[in-house]
C-alpha cells in the first residue's frame, strides 16, 4: 500500500528503552504488523502487514506516529501485557473487551499504562482484530524494510523469523514520548453484514452472466476457513469458462474463484503469484473491513471503478495528514 514509505521512516527511528511491555499471556494470535513489505514481491516474498490497516493507522495517529508504524495486531483477544515502565498506548479496531487493571477501556482511544499495570484483551464483542500502538512504533530490527510477521514465510516479528508474540516477549517503544490526539468517530465494526467494494477487472469477462449477476446481487457468507492469507466465501456457485490459466502476480484483495465456484479473497499474507481466474480485487478499504468480519458474517459485493476506490482511499489517508 502507498503508506509504505511513511512506515519505513517510522521504523528507522532509533531504538529507545523508555517504555516497554512484557507479554504475560498470549491469545490465539498476536502479531507485530506494520504496512507490510514492499519492493520484494518479485522474490516471492509476501506483502504482509496489518489486515485492518485503517485501525492500525488510527491507533498510530492517536500517538502521533506514521500511520503504518509497527503495532500489535491482536486477533480474537486473550493477550495480556504488563507495563515495565509507564507509557502511553493507543488501541483501535475491534472491541475485544480491553481492560486496564480490570477497568474497561474505550475501544478506540489512548491511555497511560503505569508501571506494573496490566492491559488485557478478552474476547471479540464487535470485529475480530484490535490494534495496539506504542510511542513511535515498536523498536525492533526490520527485515526487508518491515517488521510485519509472516509466519508461513518465517519472516518478521520480534525475532525476525515470523514468530507470533510469546509469553515473556518484551515490546519496546521506538520513542520515549508521544503526542496524544483524540480519535474522531469512525465507521463501526461490521457486525452481521458488510458491503465490500470490488474493483472489477482481471478475468471477469470469462465468467458467465448468471454468475456475475449472482456475485453482485446475492449474499455471501464468510467461511470459517479464513486467515491472513485469504478468506473463503460461500454462496452461489460461480462459473468461469476459462480453462487453465498461467500463474500471474496477484494484487491485494484479489477475488479468485477456484473450480468449486466459491471465491477466496486473497489478503496480505497471500502467495505472490497464482493461477485461478479472478473477478477483480477488493478495494484496500474493503480489505480492512473484511479483516474484521467473523465467520458467518454476510457479505455483499459492490462493483466500483479504480477511480472510485482511489478517491475513497486517498480520503482515508488525508484524514491522517
Amino acid at each position: 500500500m502507498a503508506t509504505s514509505k511513511d512506515m519505513q521512516t517510522a521504523q528507522q527511528t532509533t531504538r529507545a528503552t523508555s517504555g516497554s511491555l512484557v507479554v504475560e499471556r498470549t491469545g490465539p494470535l498476536a502479531l507485530i504488523q506494520d504496512a507490510g513489505r514492499f519492493g520484494v514481491r518479485h522474490l516471492g516474498v509476501a506483502q504482509g502487514g496489518a489486515l485492518d490497516w485503517i485501525s492500525l493507522g488510527w491507533a498510530n495517529w492517536m500517538l502521533g506516529n506514521a500511520p503504518g508504524a509497527a503495532g500489535i495486531e491482536i486477533a480474537i483477544g486473550g493477550l495480556v501485557l504488563k507495563a515495565e515502565r509507564t507509557l502511553r498506548l493507543a488501541i483501535a479496531g475491534a472491541d475485544l473487551g480491553a481492560t486496564r487493571d480490570g477497568e474497561p477501556l474505550a475501544t478506540n482511544g489512548s491511555f497511560m499504562l503505569e508501571q506494573g499495570q496490566v492491559l488485557a484483551f478478552d474476547q471479540p464483542k464487535a470485529g475480530l482484530r484490535a490494534y495496539l500502538a506504542l510511542p513511535g512504533g515498536i523498536g525492533a530490527e526490520p527485515f526487508m524494510g518491515s517488521l510485519s510477521t509472516v509466519a508461513r514465510e518465517q519472516l518478521g516479528g520480534l525475532d525476525g523469523f515470523g514468530s507470533a508474540l510469546q509469553i515473556g516477549d518484551r515490546l519496546v517503544a521506538a520513542k520515549a514520548s508521544s503526542e496524544t490526539r483524540d480519535m474522531p468517530s469512525v465507521a463501526a465494526m461490521p457486525q452481521d453484514e458488510a458491503v465490500l467494494e470490488l474493483v472489477t477487472g482481471a478475468q471477469i469477462a470469462h465468467f458467465d452472466g448468471a454468475s456475475l449477476f449472482a456475485a453482485f446481487n446475492q449474499a455471501w457468507q464468510v467461511d470459517s476457513r479464513a486467515d491472513r492469507m485469504g478468506v473463503r466465501l460461500t454462496g452461489p456457485e460461480l462459473r468461469c469458462q476459462m480453462g487453465g490459466m498461467v500463474s500471474e502476480g496477484i494484487p491485494l484483495g484479489a477475488v479468485q474463484v477456484p473450480p468449486d465456484g466459491q471465491p477466496i479473497i486473497l489478503l496480505n499474507d497471500r502467495q505472490t503469484i497464482g493461477g485461478y481466474p479472478r473477478l477483480g480485487a477488493l478495494s484496500p478499504i474493503a480489505c480492512a473491513r473484511l479483516g474484521q468480519c467473523a465467520p458467518g458474517t454476510t457479505i455483499r459485493l459492490s462493483p466500483v471503478t479504480p477511480h472510485q476506490a482511489r478517491t475513497r482511499y486517498r480520503h482515508q489517508l488525508a484524514l491522517w495528514q
Binding site: 502507498a2 514492499f38 520484494v40 514481491r41 518479485h42 498461467v246 502476480g249 494484487p251
Partner: peptide
C-alpha cells in the same frame, strides 16, 4: 511499489 513478473505477464503495483 512492486513489480511482479511471471511467465507471460508483469503485475504493476503503483502508488
Amino acid at each position: 511499489i512492486d513489480l511482479v513478473p511471471s511467465y507471460t505477464t508483469l503485475l504493476v503495483h503503483y502508488d
